[in-house]
Design a protein around this nucleic acid. Structure first.
Lengths: 338, 338
DNA sequence: CCGATCCGTCGAAGCGCTTCGACATTGATA
DNA sequence: TATCAATGTCGAAGCGCTTCGACGGATCGG
């Protein structure tokens, strides 16, 4: 591989001049710049990333810690990842992928100066990773909201507002008995922050709108979904509005309802909280609150980059939920006729 | 951050001794080693990755190029990724994530010496990325089989054998008219290698077993799946055995069959080619040929690591398909009664 | 017409590590 | 007892880049 000295020699300049051509940190005359660029081109020169990192204390790499465990929510995770990776490239950064459980990986990549910054997904209320990255010299953005962010920036959909919005939508349509079919029990037990927040919004608005709200955890399997539906209908038979916050279970919930002869969009209104493409690929176009996963990933990168080169203070951004009415929701029993 | 010199000073040895303690490349006496290790511990020392890469020409990072486009097969992709990442950690390597279309990223990470090796997924018959990585100094393993591997190692499920196996299974059960519901048309058009290979096996065995085989491409959407089923049943009404090679469409194919009153496992035998967990999370446990995605990812890393430090020649490994009989397949019309 | 300024370029130092050859010790061997 | 090979440690060079201070020459104002 050609080095910067080779390029310098070929262009008849010093190595530092080549460096300045590349970085633009000092003015270089047009003819010199042109000679250097030609030499770079001719030699196929690529700066050595390690050398650069050593000299400049910048790696142009960010770490992304993603929950790679199979099963739950995988397509949604992929959307986050896509958002992060593509946006990182806009900032001329690459992405180092860490798996969720690899807490020691955080030390490794921060302590070893492998990355300039971190993005962490799927944050729990009391997440053991938060103190680790809070102590690191690299800025971090959390996707999700821990109880104590310890000075770190956070970004997420405003699930609390989403919960309110969903209930308000159903209540306005005349539903008085609504329910949530939510995340798998283990997610709820972990107190994954989004599940908690959604529930808080749900309950608050239920009180305000004077509707009842029943909550069912739900495994992502067909059996789990059936069970959740059956339990719900047994214990709260008056339910006419369901909010589903579980991408993997959604199709099975709809199947089960259909099997029981319940027509979604007529007998039963269903509002999903999920990415738009998931809402649209069900057996019926779902009224849904969009989970803009790719956007969130992008925003996370924007935030982390801002902190990287200004001395921005940390911030928390909660994206406002948007509900799109489609075919799965309809007026309920208490609706005024029109 | 502490440097190696800090550690050396604290332990009362030279920097090179610290280095040798860390790498084990020269013998160090037990007491010295202990002093050094204590100093490392006390200072929380982490070698600087860039410095290390510069001095040793090793980054301990491998690149993984994965198709992050949304929609198709995402969970399967995630399994590959998981296999690669976890296995890479076993070799003390991290993973840099590149997106499929980022061909220039290949130059960037290889030319810039950001990675020691590469793994590329979703290889097409005539893949433009192959010549690029073939020219790189880093070893590469392809997941999938290009027409011309240009000296690179490859690994994949033996889809051709899988095709034969599926047909043989159905033929042995007495089916004489079988069909493939396969990948989306755009995948077939790209001549993604696995689709081609599956088809070749299918056709070959069909001839040998004297059964007919009809092929339908299939979009991953519910509509696409319905259409594929409808077309198939219209143009080949005698079909009693279907092979589905399309994870995303599989549930919708089953739905459509059910909607049409066709009982899978009785009227119609269906063999899926997909990961086991997908096969098991359908409305009925599917007879399937396992796509061992995580294994393949792991093997890819094993292969690339082998090439990294022996001077192994390149090799191609095709994993033998395994068919597991479950509830979705049954004897066909030509079966001997028993 | 001279000092102050600015522009464009260079040289050298240094980032933190690995690795090679050299140098003491020590123990075994003849 | 003199010799030789291990064994354990050190010093120095160098990996390829960035960046800081310096410097020559052109430009400008007074």
């Amino acid at each position: 591989m050609a080095t910067i000295d080779d390029v310098a020699k070929a262009a008849g300049v010093s190595a530092s001049t080549v460096s300045y051509v590349l970085s633009g940190k000092r003015p270089i005359s047009a003819p010199t710049r042109a000679r250097v660029e030609r030499a770079i081109e001719k030699l196929g020169y690529r700066p050595h990333a390690g050398a650069r990192a050593l000299a400049s204390a910048r790696t142009n790499v960010i770490a992304l810690m993603a929950p790679l465990r199979v099963g739950v929510n995988v397509p949604v995770i992929m959307q986050f990842v896509t958002g992060v990776v593509t946006r990182a490239r806009d900032f001329d950064h690459d992405v180092l992928l860490l798996t969720q459980d690899d807490v020691s990986g955080l030390d490794r990549v921060t302590g070893g100066s492998m990355v300039d910054a971190l993005v962490m997904m799927d944050i729990e209320a009391d997440d053991p990773r938060v103190p680790v990255v809070a102590a690191a010299k690299q800025p971090t953005v959390l996707i999700g909201l821990p109880e104590d962010p310890e000075g770190l920036s956070c970004v997420d959909l405003d699930f609390e507002a989403a919960g309110r919005l969903a209930v308000r939508h159903l209540a306005a349509a005349g539903h008085t008995d609504v329910a949530l079919i939510g995340s798998p029990p283990e997610v709820l037990l972990r107190h994954t922050s989004y599940a908690d927040r959604l529930m808080r919004g749900l309950r608050g608005q239920a009180k305000a709108s004077d509707v009842t709200v029943k909550v069912e955890a739900c495994d992502a399997s067909p059996a789990g979904a059936s069970e959740a539906v059956d339990t719900l209908l047994a214990t709260a038979p008056d339910t006419t509005g369901i909010i589903v916050h579980n991408e993997a279970a959604l199709p099975h919930v709809l199947s089960r309802l259909a099997d029981r002869g319940i027509v979604v969009g007529a007998d039963m209104s269903v509002v999903a909280v999920c990415p738009t493409d998931v809402a649209l690929s069900q057996r019926i176009a779902m009224t849904s609150i969009d989970l803009p996963a790719e956007d969130i990933g992008r925003v996370a990168v924007d935030m982390v980059m801002a902190r990287l080169d200004g001395e921005q203070p940390s911030e928390t951004r909660l994206l406002a939920p948007v509900l799109t009415e489609r075919e799965s929701s309809a007026p309920g029993p208490a609706a005024d006729d029109d």
